[in-house]
Amino acid sequence: MEILDHMALLGPLDWAAAGAIIAAWFVIGWMIEHPGAKRPSVTVLMSGRRRDWMKVFVTRDPRIFDSQILASLRQGTSFFASTCLLAVGGVLALAGNTEPLRGVAVEMTEMAVPVLVFQLKLALVAVFLTNAFLKFVWANRVFGYCAVLMAAVPNDPEDPTAYPLAAQAAELNIRAAINFNRGLRAMYFALGALAWLLGPFALMIATAVVVWVVWSREFASLPRSILLGDDA
């Protein structure tokens, strides 16, 4: 009953703001991964380039360059996974140590806000960070699958299995990249979710900023213009 009483301190605006950031996370992700044919996202454009990479890979000799690229991609996923793990630990440590949260509550409000309210708000941040960690870990593993499949591609371009295997490697590479991008988006939204500590209006503003940043990088960035220029 006490927990319900504490949760009641989160007003309708708080729940609306929390629902808005979660909905925005899903919607922007769907828009990026399923854009219209007339306005492709950077993710979709890069998927085409990854398929081109595997086609060239079949005829490249030696293939050291390709292995170095894949190793670099896996290092990136490992770095971000480690970063997320540290961030989750920091959030959990802050949620477990109630004294700093009590100090924040006293400074920001005139009333004594229960620490549980701040812990609930930090839980949203932890959810985003946990999702990001899982996406990065899975991306790293799928990049590993891709590496094995690339190693299985015959060195002879005339081999009938060469291009089909390379095409499978390309699709695994794309799936790994998609999960990597999902992890990055979750990190962006985790940063935005921190604004909830300042109140629901701050969270709504932060959500709008994060959506704009993510959208602009996929649909209105210089890299996208460069990729489209290559197609011209």
Rank of each mutant, 00 (worst) to 15 (best):
residue 86 L to H: 05
residue 6 H to L: 12
residue 8 A to W: 08
residue 109 T to Y: 14
residue 30 W to M: 14
residue 80 F to M: 11
residue 18 A to T: 12
residue 146 C to N: 04
residue 123 A to V: 11
residue 36 G to F: 10
residue 123 A to R: 01
residue 102 R to I: 03
residue 38 K to Q: 12
residue 32 I to G: 04
residue 87 A to K: 04
residue 5 D to H: 14
residue 209 V to E: 03
residue 112 A to W: 01
residue 94 L to Q: 11
residue 142 V to H: 02
residue 194 L to E: 04
residue 88 V to I: 15
residue 108 M to Y: 07
residue 207 T to A: 01
residue 16 A to F: 12
residue 153 V to E: 04
residue 139 A to W: 04
residue 186 A to W: 01
residue 90 G to D: 08
residue 168 Q to H: 07
residue 70 L to K: 01
residue 83 T to S: 14
residue 205 I to F: 12
residue 206 A to G: 03
residue 122 L to A: 03
residue 95 A to T: 11
residue 100 P to S: 08
residue 220 A to Y: 02
residue 150 M to D: 03
residue 8 A to V: 10
residue 149 L to M: 12
residue 160 P to Q: 06
residue 103 G to N: 11
residue 46 M to E: 14
residue 225 S to W: 07
residue 5 D to T: 07
residue 78 S to K: 13
residue 180 F to M: 06
residue 197 L to F: 04
residue 180 F to V: 01
residue 196 W to R: 10
residue 160 P to E: 14
residue 197 L to P: 10
residue 222 L to W: 13
residue 31 M to P: 00
residue 126 A to N: 09
residue 55 K to R: 15
residue 48 G to T: 07
residue 27 V to N: 04
residue 185 R to T: 08
residue 12 P to G: 15
residue 223 P to F: 05
residue 181 N to I: 11
residue 135 K to P: 01
residue 198 L to G: 14
residue 155 N to T: 12
residue 25 W to M: 01
residue 78 S to Y: 11
residue 102 R to F: 00
residue 22 I to Q: 03
residue 175 R to D: 14
residue 167 A to P: 02
residue 216 S to D: 15
residue 1 M to D: 13
residue 67 S to K: 10
residue 178 I to A: 12
residue 121 K to Y: 02
residue 83 T to W: 04
residue 158 E to F: 02
residue 109 T to H: 14
residue 165 L to M: 07
residue 68 Q to E: 11
residue 132 A to I: 10
residue 178 I to T: 15
residue 30 W to K: 10
residue 63 R to K: 14
residue 39 R to L: 14
residue 86 L to W: 06
residue 126 A to V: 05
residue 74 R to W: 03
residue 166 A to D: 01
residue 196 W to F: 14
residue 103 G to V: 04
residue 121 K to C: 06
residue 219 F to V: 10
residue 225 S to A: 13
residue 166 A to M: 02
residue 18 A to C: 03
residue 3 I to K: 08
residue 161 T to N: 11
residue 200 P to S: 02
residue 159 D to W: 01
residue 143 F to V: 03
residue 79 F to E: 11
residue 46 M to P: 00
residue 200 P to W: 09
residue 139 A to Y: 07
residue 37 A to W: 10
residue 122 L to H: 06
residue 13 L to W: 10
residue 111 M to Q: 14
residue 148 V to P: 00
residue 45 L to G: 03
residue 93 A to C: 02
residue 125 V to Y: 05
residue 142 V to W: 08
residue 89 G to I: 10
residue 23 A to H: 02
residue 34 H to R: 15
residue 147 A to G: 13
residue 99 E to C: 02
residue 216 S to G: 01
residue 98 T to W: 00
residue 165 L to Q: 09
residue 122 L to G: 08
residue 177 A to G: 07
residue 37 A to Y: 02
residue 55 K to Y: 08
residue 225 S to Q: 15
residue 98 T to R: 12
residue 135 K to N: 15
residue 127 V to M: 08
residue 195 A to K: 08
residue 91 V to H: 06
